[in-house]
Design a protein around this nucleic acid. Structure first.
Lengths: 210, 210
DNA sequence: TAAATGATGTAACAATTGTTACAGAACTCT
DNA sequence: AGAGTTCTGTAACAATTGTTACATCATTTA
C-alpha cells in the first residue's frame, strides 16, 4: 500500500500525510461494473482512486440516469467531500468503469487533515475546482450540443479514459449514460459509421478517426 | 459598511475576520441589469453579496446563454473562488438581477484567510458545496425535464428570489435564460396561462398559483 | 442442438422543440 | 399626433428526438 500511495501522491502530499493515509486508509478492489457508492447511501469513507476509473452518474426519482464525469488516478470524489461537510447522503452513484483500486478514508479525518496538512487543503480545493469544471462541461454539453455531438464527445472521452479505441460497450449502456433511448443511439452510431468515424461490432464500438 | 457586514456575516465570521473584511473590502453598488463579471474577465476581487441578487450564467462561444443559478445575501461566487485557486479567468457571467450591494475582496486575501480564519475555511467550503448542489440541480433540470417543466420551475424560482409574484421580465429574456427561442417561450407561457397558473402582461408575468 | 436471451438494425410514426414569417398591440420619443 | 421601436401572439413548417414494433444475428444455456 505504501508503494501505491507513493506512486500516486508522492508529489501531492507531504510525508506525514502519506503516513496518516497509510495508517487509517483501507485499500479495496472493485471489478468493472461494481457499484461503489449508490444514491442515498450514507457516506462513511472518502474514496481516493489509486488505479482504474470510476463513472459518476446522476439518477432521478424515476431511475433515469445521466453520466456526470469520470474519476481517474489520484482523484477523489468531490461529492463525498460535500457529504463530509454536512449532508451525509450521496447524491450520485459511483461505479467502477474498469477494475479499480481505491483507498477508503474515514470521513472523520477530513476536518483533522484540513487543519493539520497544507497539502490536504490544496488537494481538496483542487478537487472541488476540477469537479466544478467538469460539472460546467456537463451543463455545456446538455445545453449547447445536440445528441449527435454529445455522442461523439462521449465516445472520444471514453477512449481517453479507457486508453483504448476499441470500446467495450453496448448501445443500451451508451443510451443510459446520455439519458436517451437505445434506438436513438443505434441510429446515430450508424450515421457515424457511415461518416467513417466508427466501426460497429457486437458489444464493441471501434473509434477510427482519433 | 461595518453595520452591513454585521447584518450579513455576524454569525458566520469571527470578529477578527469581520475587521479584516472591513479593512480591505470595497463596497460597490450595481443597478439591475449591470454586468458584474463577464466571461473571460480576469478576476481580481471576490464578490461577497450584501443586498440584492445576482444571476450567474454560462455562455458558449457562439454567445448562446444559459442560467446557472442565483446568488443571494451572504453568498459568494464559487466560480471566483475557483479562479482564485489557479485559473484567473472567469468561466461565467454575473449580472445584477436587481439593485445589488457587494463587498469586493482582493483575491490575494483568499489564501491568507484560509490559513488564518477557521470561519473563512468553513464559509468557503460551504460555498463550494451549495454551488455544487445548484450545478447538480441545473443538470437535473436540463437532463430530466421538458421545456414546459423547466419554464414553470424557472418562474417559481424567480418568484422566490425576487420575493414578488409579479415578475418583470420579457419572453425574450426567459428564452435566453433557458437557452431556447422566444417563440417557444411565448407558446408555453400561453399554455400555462390557459392552465390558470399565470396571467400575462406586457413586460410582466404574474404568477397566480403559488 | 434447440431454445432462450441479448444486441443490433430499421421502419413508421408521435411528440417536442426550433425556425421563419408576419400582424397587431403597447410603449417611447419627438 | 405620428413614427419608430419593442413586445407579444400565432400560423405553418422543419428538424430533432422519442416510441413502438418487429426482424435478424450472435451468444449463452438447457
Amino acid at each position: 500500500m505504501k508503494a501505491l500511495l507513493q506512486d500516486n501522491f508522492e508529489y501531492l502530499f507531504e510525508p506525514a500525510l502519506l503516513n496518516e493515509i497509510d495508517n487509517v486508509g483501507i485499500v479495496k478492489d472493485f471489478a468493472a461494473g461494481d457499484v461503489i457508492i449508490n444514491i442515498g447511501d450514507t457516506i462513511r469513507y472518502m474514496p481516493l482512486l489509486l488505479e482504474g476509473a470510476i463513472k459518476v452518474s446522476r439518477l432521478d426519482d424515476d431511475g433515469d440516469e445521466l453520466l456526470l464525469y469520470y474519476l481517474e488516478r489520484g482523484d477523489v470524489c468531490a461529492m463525498t467531500l460535500t457529504c463530509c461537510m454536512g449532508n451525509s447522503v450521496s447524491e450520485i452513484r459511483a461505479m467502477a468503469e474498469m477494475d479499480t483500486k481505491i483507498v477508503l478514508i474515514p470521513v472523520q479525518k477530513m476536518s483533522d487533515w484540513l487543519r493539520d496538512f497544507h497539502s490536504w487543503r490544496t488537494f481538496v480545493f483542487e478537487s472541488y475546482n476540477s469537479r466544478l469544471k467538469e460539472m460546467l462541461e456537463a451543463i455545456d454539453n446538455l445545453a449547447f450540443l445536440n445528441m449527435h455531438e454529445r455522442l461523439l464527445k462521449y465516445l472520444k472521452h471514453k477512449v481517453i479514459v479507457t486508453k483504448d479505441t476499441m470500446l467495450s460497450i453496448t448501445h443500451q449502456t451508451v443510451a443510459y449514460d446520455l439519458h436517451t433511448s437505445r434506438v436513438v443511439i443505434s441510429r446515430l452510431l450508424k450515421s457515424l459509421e457511415k461518416e467513417g468515424k466508427l466501426k460497429l461490432h457486437r458489444n464493441k464500438i471501434e473509434f477510427l478517426d482519433f
